[in-house]
Write a protein that binds this DNA or RNA. Structure first.
Lengths: 267, 267
DNA sequence: TCAGAAACGATCAAAATCAATCATAAAATT
DNA sequence: AATTTTATGATTGATTTTGATCGTTTCTGA
């Protein structure tokens, strides 16, 4: 067996299991342990994996991330204050007992903080949101069936016959990658697939986007702007964008970012 | 078992329960207590957990779980060592890549510890199991759609049209309230409803019950004993019960509970 | 307070793993 | 074809890890 082939096997093995032993690979490749050690050492200096006593482990620690997915987290922290202010307004729209749908996303995730003292009927395809609400609220929580995608923390099924059909929401809350006159845009086809299903189950769509999203464009159009009943954004929105939204007949709610608590602003 | 793998298990265990004992981990990892002490000391200086007398605790404060199911947790601690030994045998039946179904329950939940270093395709109606596997394993995780019941940590839908139908498992692992010649018994009608759906999606049923369950009777019969392919229990099972199981044509696996460390048994 | 139990730290021997070396086989070069 | 280079496997001794033991400390319950 050639060196490259062994390396391929080693790297693929290290992806599958958090740690692999020298012996495992030696057996797998029918090479001697000495050779495997050299291979691992070589891959280690190339940064393809990390060498540990007894074997090797993946460079990306696949392990516990408090919520789900590192990607989810970094993106979560950007514009966190804006997103939080927007989320507060979103929750303010809800009355006790309402049935609502929350589509997964970093902005909509912020809603959980304000939902903890509420009692609603929530359907969400976000595993992270469901987890948080189950633990920290009195709301009833419903999820669609399907596989859990760690990166986006989304539950998604390729099938049409899931319980999503049996849920009806007064409102559906969703974020997006970008908004323009052409409609609501997303970049991930996977996400769109799940969103489409939910959209049909709600009367009103409420879009949660920070003001930077009006400048962003993305590749895939989720739905036309007219389908959206309300957009909630922050006070960084431009007059042009404001007009664009209102021309489309969409209600606009602008959340003040610094206003909330600790009004110790420099004023 | 290798150092990294042990560390993974320890961290995953400390996350699930606020505090874990040295013995628990020693049993879980089949390593000596001395080694676990060293591991904990090492993880302590790395700041991954906090070392306390008798074991370790999560570095993050226990985090109030007002509704996360206290019932679930207390019941979990009863017969924990037996349940864990049984769960170990259950996971040992699985081969890499297998598609399996895990029905929610306190005994089956113990399987997650041994699954953390495996890569399987898991379908489960237990929110707690799904949560743990998503965070601490590389297995693919699929859940049925429905409402989340906090008390049992179960996802349940009254509808028939969920994605459960689209999942097939080589084996289904389940616990139960009681076992007798009449069949497998449960007390909660809600649980039965969800279990019935899953049972039809698996070739083999594997029943995980500690030996006390053979004496317990319950009101509702889930399925006849003949439907079960394998029963895994602990070494407290009586000869009569053993015979009863074998007469029904069910394979019996007896997990040794105290076998692992400190073989200072009275011989 | 005291005795027994449990947990701890230190120590040592055994086992596992590693690094270094060398001989051989394969590959590449001349 | 001859020779150099490289890769591999085996061996040996060093290093690290592990498990068991023992004496000490800490906890627990009477």
């Amino acid at each position: 067996m050639h060196e490259r082939e062994r390396h391929r096997i080693i790297l693929s093995a290290v992806q599958e299991k958090p740690v692999i032993t020298i012996q495992d690979i030696a057996e797998l490749t029918e090479a001697s342990e000495a050779t495997i050690r050299r291979d691992i050492a070589s891959l280690h200096v190339k940064g393809k994996l990390r060498r540990v006593r007894g074997g090797a482990e993946a460079v990306h620690p696949p392990q516990l991330t408090p919520l789900a997915g590192r990607h989810f987290h970094v993106s979560e922290s950007e514009n966190a204050d804006k997103k939080r202010a927007i989320a507060r307004e979103a929750v303010a729209l809800c009355e006790e007992g309402d049935a609502i749908i929350i589509n997964g996303g970093t902005t909509t995730f912020q809603m959980v903080h304000f939902l903890s003292s509420r009692r609603l009927q929530v359907m969400t395809n976000s595993f992270a949101i469901a987890e948080h609400l189950v633990k920290n609220s009195k709301s009833s929580v419903t999820v669609p069936g399907g596989a859990i995608y760690r990166e986006q923390s989304i539950i998604l099924s390729p099938f049409d016959n899931d319980v999503t059909r049996n849920f009806y929401g007064k409102r559906m809350f969703m974020g997006s990658q970008g908004v323009g006159p052409f409609g609501v845009m997303e970049s991930d086809a996977l996400i769109i697939q799940g969103e489409q299903k939910l959209i049909n189950q709600a009367d009103e769509l409420v879009l949660l986007v920070d003001s930077t999203k009006f400048a962003r464009r993305s590749s895939l159009i989720l739905c036309p702007l007219q389908r959206v009943a309300t957009i909630i954004t922050d006070d960084g929105i431009s007059d042009a964008d404001r007009k664009m939204v209102e021309d489309a007949g969409v209600q606009l709610i602008v959340a003040k970012v610094n206003q909330t608590r600790n009004s110790v602003s420099v004023a």
